[in-house]
Design a binder for these strands. Structure first.
Lengths: 217, 217
DNA sequence: CGGTTAATTGAACGCATTCAACACGAGTGG
DNA sequence: CCACTCGTGTTGAATGCGTTCAATTAACCG
C-alpha cells in the first residue's frame, strides 16, 4: 500500500488489515479493569495494541492538571502505534476491557520489516486524519456543535436507533475541550429539542437522525 | 527507520532526510505569488512538496465559511504527504515562495517503494505529533496562552532576539481558533508586559525569552 | 436501604466575541 | 509632496457563550 496510488480514493482509511490480523493471531491477551492504565504518558512505545472488547481512551495531562482526551478506541481498533519513540498520550481502559498486545520487534519477525512499516503507515494515516478532524472540531465549533458532532460520530454513519455512551461526561468534556457542565447542558438542550432522548445517562436514543447528521460535516 | 527501535528516543522527529534529499535533487521548482493556491482542498494527493523559500500554510474551509489553518511550513519543511488519497487541507503561499514538487510515482522509481514508504512514514509521524500538539493547544489553552505558545514556537528553541511574522493576524487567528481582534489584543497585552515588543506589526522582538518559553509546555 | 459517585440544574461571573470606530502603512495618482 | 484609497492592524464598548461555583437530583453498589 502506497500513498496516492490507490485506485479508489476514500475519505476515511480502513484499519490496516494485515497488522490487525497479526495482532489478533499472535498478540498476548490482557485484561484491564475500569480506569486501569494500559500504558503511561512518556512511556517507551514498544508495543502495538488492539482492542478486543471494551473501550479505551488516550489521555494527556497538562502541568497544571488540565486533561485532554486524544481519541477513543473501540473493539477492532488499533492503538499505540505512536508517532514517536515515546507515547505522547497515556492509554486507559474506560470500561473493563480486553486488549491484545504485541512487541513491535515480534511483529517484525512475523511479517517482516516492510510489512510492518506499511501497516503502521496505514495506521498513522488513519490517526492523522482523525487528529485533523478533531483539530477542526476544537478550533471552529461551538459547544452545541461539538456535542452534536460527537454524538453523530458515536452513533455512526447509520444513525438510527440509539447508542451507548461508554465514557462519562468528564471524558466527553476533555475530548471536546469543554467543561462537564456545558456538555451536560448541551445534551439536555438537544433532548429538549427532541433530537435525542436519554433512556439513562449512558444510553441515548436518536430521535431525529437527520438533525444529528447535520453536525457531522 | 522503524518505529520503536531507535536507540535514542527524542521528542520531536527530524524531517526525513532521504526524502528531502530526493525532492531537492529531482523536484520541479515552482514559484508562487502571495496567496496563490499550491493545491486545492479535496484535490488528489499525487505529489510531495518541499519549501525552498517563503512560507506555506495549509487551510481548510468550512461549509459556513469558517477557516482553519492546519500548519505553517517553512523553508526545508516537507508538506503534502497527506494521510489520504485526497488532500484534507488546501496549501497556499503566505509569502511569495519557491516550492519543489515531485510525483510520488517518480520518487518511487528513484528510491524504491520501501524507501519512499519509510520516508513518508517519518514525515507522517512528524505531522501527527504536530497535529496532536495543536489539538492540545486548541483544547485546553486560553487566548493568552495560545498566542504565547505560538510566538514561542515561532521564535524557536533558541528564543532570543526577534522573529518575523510572515503570516497576517487572520492566519494566526485561524490557526489558534481565535478571532483576529483577540489575537491583536493578546499581542498588545504581551507587549505592555514587556514580554515582547513590536518593531513593526510583522516584526517582533523578544524582551523576556524565559516568559515566552513558559508558554511552550 | 444508606453511602458514594456521576450527572443535572441554577445563578453569577468572566473571557472571548461581536460590532464599530479609528490608526497605520503601502501604493497610486494628482 | 500631498491627498486619496485600500488593506491590515489596533482599540473601545457591549453582548453572549461557556465557565465557575454552588446546590440538587439521579444512578450505582455495598
Amino acid at each position: 500500500m502506497t500513498i496516492g496510488a490507490s485506485p479508489e480514493p476514500r475519505s476515511v482509511e480502513p484499519a490496516p488489515a494485515a497488522l490487525a490480523e497479526v495482532i489478533s493471531r499472535f498478540g498476548v491477551m490482557m485484561t484491564f479493569g475500569r480506569n486501569a492504565e494500559i500504558y503511561a504518558q512518556e512511556a517507551p512505545a514498544e508495543h502495538l495494541f488492539r482492542v478486543v472488547s471494551g473501550v479505551v481512551r488516550t489521555a494527556s495531562c497538562d502541568l497544571d492538571g488540565r486533561r485532554h482526551i486524544g481519541e477513543f478506541y473501540y473493539p477492532g481498533d488499533l492503538f499505540g502505534l505512536e508517532a514517536a519513540a515515546r507515547h505522547q498520550y497515556s492509554a486507559e481502559a474506560i470500561t473493563a476491557c480486553q486488549v491484545q498486545m504485541v512487541r513491535q520487534s515480534a511483529v517484525r519477525t512475523l511479517i517482516g520489516v516492510e510489512e510492518l512499516d506499511l501497516a503502521i503507515l496505514g495506521g498513522l494515516r488513519r490517526e492523522l486524519q482523525k487528529a485533523r478532524e478533531h483539530m477542526r472540531l476544537l478550533g471552529l465549533r461551538n459547544a452545541r456543535e461539538k456535542v452534536g458532532a460527537f454524538l453523530a460520530a458515536l452513533a455512526g454513519p447509520g444513525v438510527a436507533g440509539g447508542a451507548d455512551l461508554p465514557m462519562g461526561r468528564q471524558d466527553m468534556a476533555d475530548y471536546l475541550g469543554l467543561t462537564i457542565e456545558t456538555v451536560s447542558r448541551m445534551l439536555s438542550q438537544l433532548q429538549s429539542e427532541d433530537v435525542i432522548e436519554f433512556a439513562s445517562s449512558r444510553r441515548v436514543l436518536i430521535r431525529r437522525p437527520e438533525m444529528l447528521e447535520a453536525f457531522a460535516a
